[in-house]
Design a protein around this nucleic acid. Sequence first.
DNA 1: AATTAGCACTCGAGGCAGTAGAGTGCTAAA
DNA 2: TTTAGCACTCTACTGCCTCGAGTGCTAATT
Lengths: 349, 349
Amino acid sequence: MVYQKNRDERNSEILSQIIQLYTATAIPVSSKSVAESMDNIVSSATIRNIMAELEEDGFIEQPHTSAGRRPTDRGYRHYVDHLNGRLSLEKHKVKKFEEEFFEKVRSIKDLIEQSSHLINRQLHYASAVMLPDTVSQYMKHLELLKIKSDTVMAVLVTMTNIVENYIIKLDGDIEKGQLNKIANFINEKCEGKKVSDILEYLKGVNSVADKNSELGAMSAFAIRLIDGMAKTDIENEIFITGMDCFSGQADFSNSEDFRNLLKILSDKKLMMKIMKGELSAGGMRFYIGHENEPEPLKKCSLVTFGYEFHGTPLGRIGIIGPTRMHYENVFQTVNYLIEVLNSKIEGLS
Amino acid sequence: MVYQKNRDERNSEILSQIIQLYTATAIPVSSKSVAESMDNIVSSATIRNIMAELEEDGFIEQPHTSAGRRPTDRGYRHYVDHLNGRLSLEKHKVKKFEEEFFEKVRSIKDLIEQSSHLINRQLHYASAVMLPDTVSQYMKHLELLKIKSDTVMAVLVTMTNIVENYIIKLDGDIEKGQLNKIANFINEKCEGKKVSDILEYLKGVNSVADKNSELGAMSAFAIRLIDGMAKTDIENEIFITGMDCFSGQADFSNSEDFRNLLKILSDKKLMMKIMKGELSAGGMRFYIGHENEPEPLKKCSLVTFGYEFHGTPLGRIGIIGPTRMHYENVFQTVNYLIEVLNSKIEGLS
DNA sequence: AATTAGCACTCGAGGCAGTAGAGTGCTAAA
DNA sequence: TTTAGCACTCTACTGCCTCGAGTGCTAATT
């Protein structure tokens, strides 16, 4: 019935007002302040009635009887789910970043780094950025260097201009000429291929080649190499910055909470695991308050989005702030970042 | 006079006791607790007399009349300056780390990373680690790759197995063969040289070569390249980890102080500046409380030490904790790290 | 039927006084 | 030179009180 719809619409609007006020001040908002923020088109008493309804619906809550209301996680969720309609107007507001932040970007690493800066400086939230896995990258060039009699360094340059290196220790000596041959072989056959595909390709070659032939030895060595690279670099390739954003915020005045949060954010392995789970998520995702997993993050919100190359998801970027986050700004900035990142990445190669 | 010396010696010992008690508990220590910690060889009244002297000397202070005493920065300084004698006994205590932490170290980057882990996990303090400047490194190999018609990537491998890359945009096109020639030229002439020396060498070549000759063009290009590399990488090559160590500590229960500290530690540029100033310091250095510069660090202590290759200082590592730091442990661990780092670094090439 | 003014009620924040006890400095005795 | 003893000081903690912001409900108004 039309009747009901109007009511819901207005309730949503009041909720939105409450969220914006609470986001700005961190103080539970009173009916009076809502009325004022709406230029008193309705009285505080009316707002009180609506607020009672919103509370019944679980969108807002009172810390105690004689206090104002603040949004619940559910309230934020409702707000975020209905963001799409409300904005996408002020796109120009974000545009000015471009020149500042993405000026002399040469590699995907620069891009990711700049994104994290932008999140810290413009949004004032923490960021967790993942560099791409080696395996999901496309190879441009491989170089093999003998760095000791029995030690070889492989330097892999990807299409997105990331340089990975891997050091491998051999059982015996190996000749320089032999190394060059192997490098040439891989470069010729595999340039432009995805690293994971290269591995499969080499396995194919190896499976049909005579074990004692040159091709057999070469492909066996190459497999060992690429496989080693793929397994190695995964560990620490995550960077968390801007943790200091939480310390000013009233939300974490409870130092126990703050301490726990810092501990989580400082734990690269854990953060990597969280972000890793997101890899195939696609698009922008909001995780609000209790929707997050390790206890200390339940007072935070996490917004993640991915970047990709030729349609393959390469990595993901996370924005972490208090649940009382400025979702609107985040939404707009992320939309902008997704666009810029993906286009710039394609432009790299 | 012998008399005086004994008095000073005993006062020092009491100071040391006070510091150890205060380091453990963060509570101003009373005369009684000092007496007890010394098995009541003297009474608390005697301790009180000595404490009065120590206070007069500025080594300890009272937060207020009816409280115990805590060390002043000057007290810590005295303690630290007299550490040498007191310990260097339990060297074996630290040895067990070696296997855990420095097992499969392949490059200087790994070494530095592991050192920072060790500081975080074993000492529970924050660490600031600097990676080496490109210019102070010794070159092993240079590779030039054409990544676009007008863009070249240089990949530099150093004797300590660091891989640096630099992307340079040219005015016009360049041929692959030409690139290889330049790379070969540099590799032949400069392998094993320090990067800063290479730059000088090339300038020398360039100054006598005919500008229109191949040698002139090659050396000009090489200069532009190496110079660019040297200038680029300096910015962000510092990593701060373990900031969460401060949050538990009673010292920073004042959240304002904590907030400010976090802000400083998160500021890579600033931290880089601080550590940079230390580069040529040599050996282990203690900076206690107010001896540090930006205001928020005045409640901390910073201990720095360097690592080197063939006698050239490469970089420096900093340990940052509350002024109420466990200096003894730090002293021992740093001594150990200096030894291990420098020997392992030499072993890399 | 929806809105609003008015009013009684609730509850936390903050100020104030009183108490307990930890720790000191001083004095006089050992 | 050390120590026991004691008076003194100052914080931390507690309970009590008041103030006021904010609510929910009721009755009047549109």
